[in-house]
Amino acid sequence: MTVDVIVCGVGPAGRALAHRSLVRGVTVAVVDPAPDRAWQATYAAWADELPEWIAPSAVAATVAQPTAWGTLAHRIDRPYVVFDTERLRTSLELTGAEIVVGRAASCTPDTVSLADGRVLTARRVIDARGVGRSPARAEQTAYGVVLDAQRCAGLEPLFMDWRADNGAPAAAPRSFLYAVPLGDGTMLLEETCLVGRPALDGTVLRDRLHHRLRSHGIELTGDESVERVRFPVEGGRPGPHTFGTAGGFAHPATGYSVAASLAAADTVAAGESAWPASARAVHRLRAAGLRALLALPPADLPLFFDAFFTMPTAAQRAYLSERADLGGTVTAMRTLFTALPGPLRRRVALATLGMPIRSRIRMGSAIMDLCDRSGRAR
């Protein structure tokens, strides 16, 4: 077999890339152990991140202004969409692609070796198989239940809620409540560990969710549909032959990757680079944000997100969504840094200085300049 492109892995990123390649008239083969397997996770994105070609039917629900809680409530002036997972999957049609059922054991720029001994060749091979778990990699974990929306009366859609009503000890690693409508008269309520190394176990998150829902007057019966989440937020390798989380498209400080992959699918399908120098620099700065989150004491996380969601929406968007906006990302990080309480600034500065040396010089200089001017972070 020799085709224009082989895509290994048909999760949301790989399937989107294969689909957009087919739309361009590129000959495509996809390799996956179970290419027709339904996606189990709930995917969501900011509405302004999505490319125009996304089928409207793939969006199950839209929250015009989701709420985020640190110690205070923050209304985010940015529509947030929740996908209908199955409609998203089927809208990314693979008609015309050669479907190869098998596990890719290794990928080179033009060859895929399958576990059963088959070898496939193409003008270009793209690895979209995701990132494997490792104790060295920070992860996001979550435990959620799906409830009839009437049982959640009075509970508004929540992007994150860090309030301490989940029964966790004050000094324990923090988790937050994520609550979104699914568009079919139900809501997903999910206790989430944003990032940890190691991340909180699902059993801990389950117990916290049950406690938190009881505090809202919601009793569970045990018959509810359950969603479990666990995935690395780091470990991707940006480059011309990787895509999705395997290619570093996951935001290392939030775990979001689907919208970024959808937005970049046309660029990569056209054979162009999704990683200009500015995008690589932003990726390094976001990795610094991950280090800062991992370094913060549990009690500081709500204060950190109070400062983040107090920033202008444009600054929030630059940090959360703009993969190649280096100037906007630096401005957002500086704005956040100056808004943090003094002791929190010092911890963030020290964590950020773990950056690779060239980035360390640039960002470290900016941070220490802010420290000097504030007179409170040293």
Rank of each mutant, 00 (worst) to 15 (best):
P298V: 02
L326G: 06
L213K: 06
L158S: 04
E156P: 08
C193Y: 05
D77L: 09
R317Q: 14
H210S: 11
Y80D: 00
P276E: 13
G132R: 14
R373D: 12
V226A: 02
L290M: 05
A171M: 00
A260L: 02
L194Q: 14
A318Y: 04
A61P: 00
P198G: 03
P312V: 11
G236H: 06
R228Y: 07
R75T: 15
I126E: 09
A315H: 14
A324H: 13
G185W: 05
M1R: 09
S57E: 15
Q140E: 10
P298L: 03
P12N: 02
L88D: 05
T2W: 13
H19D: 07
R78Y: 02
V23T: 12
G271N: 03
G255R: 00
I126V: 15
R208T: 03
I218L: 10
G167E: 04
A269L: 02
A307F: 05
A332W: 03
G70C: 08
F304G: 01
V125A: 13
E98F: 01
A97L: 10
V233Y: 04
G154K: 10
V268N: 07
G247L: 08
F159G: 08
C193A: 11
S106N: 07
A263Q: 10
S321M: 09
R124S: 14
S21Q: 03
A64I: 00
R284C: 09
P356D: 06
G25Y: 07
A339P: 01
G102D: 08
P56E: 00
P35M: 05
A349G: 04
A41D: 15
A149P: 00
G236S: 04
L94E: 05
R197A: 15
G247V: 08
A253P: 05
A279Q: 09
I54Y: 00
E98A: 14
M311E: 13
V131C: 07
R118N: 11
S21W: 01
G364H: 01
L326S: 07
M355W: 01
D369R: 13
A259H: 10
W162M: 03
D165C: 07
D48Y: 07
I361N: 00
Y80M: 04
L336Y: 09
A269M: 02
W162Y: 12
G327C: 04
E139V: 12
R103D: 12
R214D: 15
Y319H: 12
I357A: 14
A264T: 08
G247Y: 07
S91W: 10
L209I: 11
C193S: 11
A377P: 09
V131A: 06
G244K: 09
V10T: 15
E52F: 04
A199M: 07
V146P: 01
R75P: 04
A288T: 13
T121V: 12
L88W: 07
D207N: 15
G14F: 06
A269I: 02
F243Y: 14
